Amino acid sequence: MSESSTSMTSHRPYLLRALYEWIADNGMTPHLLVDATRPAVQVPAHAVKEGKIVLNVAARAVSHLEMGNDFIRFSARFGGVSHPVNVPVGAVLAIYARETGQGMALPEDASLEDAALDEASSEQPESAAPSPQLSAVPSDPPDGDDDGPHTPTPRRGGHLRIVK
């Protein structure tokens, strides 16, 4: 394997552009889930909830959309006021269709992880313990000793009745 094959550019912008086109071609509304706490993210602060923001990037909702290899830039209205939006590609967590939820949660970019680790190691003293890694925890099994399959309770019909 040659050195040039190991230093490929990030695949994130290519995935974003392809999925954006796929969603738009199917008549759906593309949305981006963005980590607004990342550096260089420029979005209206009042639209950020819990450090994240969902952006409607449909052609009819934005103007001057530019999906480059490093940044996604456009102008959009928030509460009736036009704002410039500037999002580094690395800050995009997912792209999906609003109507169906179909899309993709983007994997963490290896080059971004390496850069973050380099920054963290240069900021922390050598004696500092590394931060713990998070992992998914399986949910608790239901209470009871029954190991057999559980039969679901029958679903109730609607409570509204047609009266003539």
Rank of each mutant, 00 (worst) to 15 (best):
Ser2Ala: 03
Ser4Arg: 08
Ser4Glu: 10
Thr6Val: 00
Met8Glu: 13
Thr9Asn: 11
Thr9Trp: 09
Ser10Asn: 04
Ser10Tyr: 04
His11Gly: 11
Arg12Ile: 11
Tyr14Cys: 01
Tyr14Gly: 08
Tyr14Met: 08
Leu15His: 10
Arg17Thr: 09
Arg17His: 09
Ala18Met: 04
Tyr20Asp: 10
Trp22Val: 12
Ile23Asp: 08
Ile23Gly: 06
Ala24Cys: 12
Asn26Leu: 05
Gly27Thr: 12
Gly27Glu: 12
Gly27Pro: 14
Met28Lys: 09
Thr29Gly: 02
Thr29Ala: 01
His31Ile: 15
Leu32Asp: 12
Leu33Cys: 06
Leu33Ile: 11
Thr37His: 13
Arg38Gln: 11
Arg38Asp: 01
Pro39Phe: 07
Val41Ile: 14
Val41Ser: 07
Val41Tyr: 06
Pro44Asn: 02
Ala45Arg: 15
Ala45Leu: 11
Ala45Met: 09
Val48Lys: 04
Val48Gly: 06
Gly51Tyr: 04
Lys52Asn: 00
Lys52Arg: 03
Ile53Gly: 05
Ile53Val: 12
Val54Lys: 09
Val57Thr: 11
Ala58Thr: 00
Ala58Ser: 13
Ala59Phe: 04
Ala61Val: 07
His64Cys: 03
Glu66Ala: 04
Met67Val: 15
Gly68Val: 04
Asn69Ser: 10
Phe71Val: 13
Ser75Cys: 10
Arg77Thr: 06
Arg77Asn: 07
Gly79Trp: 03
Gly80Gln: 06
Val81Pro: 01
Val81Arg: 13
Val81Gly: 01
His83Ala: 01
Pro84Ala: 02
Pro84Lys: 03
Val85Thr: 01
Asn86Lys: 05
Asn86Met: 02
Val87Ser: 05
Pro88Glu: 02
Val89His: 00
Gly90Gln: 07
Ala91Asn: 11
Leu93Ser: 01
Ala94Gly: 08
Ala94Ile: 10
Tyr96His: 08
Ala97Tyr: 13
Arg98Cys: 04
Arg98Ser: 09
Gly101Met: 04
Gln102Cys: 13
Glu108Ile: 00
Asp109His: 03
Glu113Pro: 00
Glu119Phe: 00
Glu119His: 00
Ala120Glu: 03
Ser122Asn: 11
Ser122Ala: 13
Ser122Gly: 02
Ser122Val: 00
Ser127Arg: 08
Ser127Thr: 01
Ala128Lys: 02
Ala129Ile: 06
Leu134Asn: 09
Leu134Met: 10
Ser135Ile: 14
Ser135Lys: 15
Ser135Gln: 15
Ser139Cys: 01
Gly144Trp: 02
Gly144Pro: 08
Asp145Pro: 00
Pro149Tyr: 14
His150Arg: 11
Thr153Met: 08
Thr153Lys: 15
Pro154Leu: 04
Pro154Gln: 05
Arg156Trp: 09
His159Val: 12
His159Ser: 13
His159Gln: 12
Leu160Cys: 10
Leu160Met: 15
Ile162Pro: 06
Ile162Glu: 09
Lys164Glu: 10
Lys164Gly: 07
